[in-house]
């Protein structure tokens, strides 16, 4: 295979080739498996890459627009819950099962009402209010000027208090950029509590484990305590209901 063949492939695919050259190339491709494989690979790479590489501006333009739409709709979608459509199949057995399920549900609700409230949300709110260091009104760096990290942190704190956990997580993520080590400790604690508020227990536990094992963190003790609560039997029962 000589390197000139790739230009010939290109000319062939563009249709910029004389009839004589075309016949010669097709003969080579039909008779040599190696040449055909080389041509096939070239064609695949050209087909796959040419729209993207040949016109990168188009994709960039779409990306910018999608990012704007993402920002616009993230908040809107985070506050709504839409049920997935369920395909309904009518039938005698199905109806009986539905009635049985309804009775079971009523029974479970009754039991749930008797169990002390120890859900993830309740735990998160209880812990944030028990901690002086995360009071939203205090100035974080002690100066009159507030940094953007602190601003995001405080708005995250506010969102958390209003039970807008999704917004709190977004704000804390932004707050982390350029934050001081002391503030990062507070941010991580708020992040963990927000994940918990959102019901993402697994993620919350992951963050809490990190905090609890960080000996420098002011929140390691509280994180350990909260982890114990989360792993406790009452929380499991509450979560089940």
């Amino acid at each position: 295979m000589t390197s000139t063949n790739h230009t010939l492939f290109e000319d062939y695919l563009r249709g910029y080739i004389s009839d004589e050259e075309k016949k010669r190339l097709e003969l080579v491709l039909d008779s040599s498996e190696t040449e055909r494989e080389e041509f096939d690979l070239y064609k695949t790479m050209r087909r796959t890459l040419s729209p993207n590489i040949g016109n990168p501006y188009k994709e960039r333009e779409l990306k910018e627009h999608l990012e704007e739409l993402g920002k616009k709709y993230t908040h809107e979608f985070s506050n709504e819950v839409m049920e997935m459509p369920v395909v309904r199949k009518a039938g005698y057995v199905r109806r009986i099962l539905s009635v049985a399920a309804s009775f079971t549900l009523v029974g479970l609700i009754g039991i749930a009402a008797m169990i002390p409230k120890n859900t993830s949300k309740a735990l998160a709110q209880a812990y944030v209010y028990s901690s002086d260091s995360t009071a939203p009104s205090r100035s974080v760096n002690g100066d009159n000027l507030i940094t953007s990290s602190e601003e995001y942190y405080l708005s995250g704190m506010q969102a958390f208090k209003e039970h807008k956990y999704e917004t709190a997580i977004i704000s804390t993520r932004k707050a982390k950029v350029g934050a001081s080590p002391e503030l990062i400790q507070e941010i991580e604690w708020l992040m963990a509590l927000s994940e918990l508020g959102l019901g993402n227990d697994a993620k919350a536990k992951e963050l809490l484990t990190e905090i609890s094992t960080d000996t420098k963190s002011d929140f390691s003790g509280e994180a350990k305590e909260l982890l114990e609560d989360l792993n406790g039997i009452m929380h499991r029962i509450s979560s089940f209901f």
Partner: peptide, 17 residues
């Protein structure tokens, strides 16, 4: 499934690209 609205928007954007 262990994600948040921001994760969803990132995933959605990736798929549309």
């Amino acid at each position: 499934n262990n994600g948040n609205a921001q994760d969803a928007m990132d995933l959605f954007q990736e798929v549309l690209i």
